[in-house]
Simulated scan of single mutants.
Amino acid sequence: MTAIVTRFHEAMLHKSADELADLYAEDGVHEFPFLMPGMVERYNGREEIRAGYKASWGATPASVEEIRNVVIHQSTDPEVLVVEHETAVTVYGRPYTVPGLLVLRVREGKIIHTRDYMDATAVASLRSGHTE
């Protein structure tokens, strides 16, 4: 199951909504429990994930440089992985780090559910270009 984490991180590095969405089951869910008001809270289904990430990644000035400090935790549920990571991004030539935590439920090689926890304030700032 760790291969799916590698592919997830590669999609982030490439800012490829297609690569990311292709990891999901047709009815997969990707949710963001801690986002700021006005931001999307969840995507329902592979095609909504694809469209949402295409719009989101297409609109951000952030360039993903590296996914680092990755720690994968197996849970007592064989379908669930917990992934800690830091995303190193560059925005207008300045480097920033956004810590994150993913809780992935994988069944038959496809993600069926993701809870994507990240620093919502940092993400909102990076999206707006206001990084101070």
Rank of each mutant, 00 (worst) to 15 (best):
Arg7Val: 07
Glu31Phe: 13
Ser56Trp: 09
Ile112Ala: 06
Ile49Phe: 02
Ala17Met: 05
Gly129Ala: 05
Tyr117Ala: 11
Tyr43Cys: 01
Pro61Arg: 01
Leu20Cys: 07
Arg46His: 08
Ile112Gln: 08
Leu102His: 12
Ser63Trp: 13
Ser16Arg: 00
Arg127Gln: 11
Asp27Gln: 13
Arg105Asp: 04
Met12Asp: 03
Trp57Arg: 01
Ala124Val: 03
His14Trp: 05
Asp27Tyr: 11
Val64Leu: 10
Gly93Asn: 06
Met12Ala: 09
Tyr43Phe: 15
Thr97Ser: 02
Glu86Ser: 07
Tyr117Met: 11
Glu31Val: 11
Asn69Leu: 14
Gly58Val: 00
Leu81Asp: 06
Glu10Ile: 08
Ile49Ser: 03
Gly109Pro: 01
Trp57Phe: 06
Leu104Thr: 00
Asp119Gln: 04
Val89Trp: 03
Tyr43His: 14
His85Asn: 14
Ala122Tyr: 08
Ala120Pro: 05
Val91Pro: 04
Met39Ala: 06
Ser128Leu: 13
Val71Ile: 14
Met39His: 05
Val70Cys: 10
Ala11Val: 04
Gly52Phe: 07
Asn69His: 14
His9Pro: 10
Glu86His: 09
Lys110Tyr: 05
Glu108Arg: 12
Glu48Met: 08
Val106Ser: 09
Val91Phe: 00
Phe34Cys: 10
Val123Lys: 02
Val98Lys: 03
Pro33Ser: 10
Val64Met: 12
Val103Gly: 11
Gly109Ala: 07
Val71Ala: 12
Arg94Tyr: 06
Ala17Asn: 01
Val70Gln: 13
Met39Ile: 03
Arg105Leu: 05
Ala120Ser: 13
His30Asp: 15
Asp27Cys: 06
Ile111Leu: 12
Glu86Val: 02
Gly45Trp: 07
Met118Lys: 09
Ala55Tyr: 03
Pro61Thr: 05
Leu126Asn: 06
Tyr96Val: 02
Pro78Tyr: 05
Leu23Thr: 09
Tyr92Arg: 12
Glu65Gly: 11
Thr6Gly: 12
Arg127Ser: 03
Pro61Val: 01
Glu47Asn: 11
Glu108Ala: 14
Phe32Gln: 01
Val106Cys: 09
Glu19Cys: 06
Glu26Met: 12
Leu20Asp: 04
Pro37Glu: 05
Asp116Ser: 11
Ile67Ser: 10
Ala122Val: 11
Val89Phe: 07
Val64Cys: 09
Leu104Glu: 03
Met118Gly: 01
Pro37Thr: 06
Ile72Asn: 11
Met118Pro: 00
Phe8Gln: 12
Thr2His: 15
Tyr43Pro: 09
Leu81Phe: 14
Val82Asn: 10
Trp57Met: 00
Val89Asp: 02
Ala25Trp: 06
Tyr92Ile: 02
Asp18Arg: 11
Met39Pro: 01
Ser63Thr: 15
Val89Thr: 06
Trp57Asn: 01
Val5Tyr: 11
Lys15Leu: 03
Glu48Arg: 08
Val83Ser: 04
Phe32Trp: 02
Ala21Glu: 09
Leu23Lys: 12
Glu84Ile: 05
Ala62Gln: 06
Gly109Tyr: 02
Asp116Met: 10
Gly45Lys: 10
Met39Phe: 08
Pro37Tyr: 08
Ile49His: 06
Val103Pro: 09
Leu13Tyr: 01
Leu81Gln: 13
Pro99Trp: 05
Leu13Val: 08
Ala25Gly: 02
Tyr24Gln: 10
Asp22Ala: 15
Leu102Lys: 09
Ile49Gly: 08
Tyr43Met: 11
Arg105Gly: 00
Glu26Ser: 14
Glu65Val: 15
Thr121Gly: 14
Gly58Ile: 02
Ile111Gln: 10
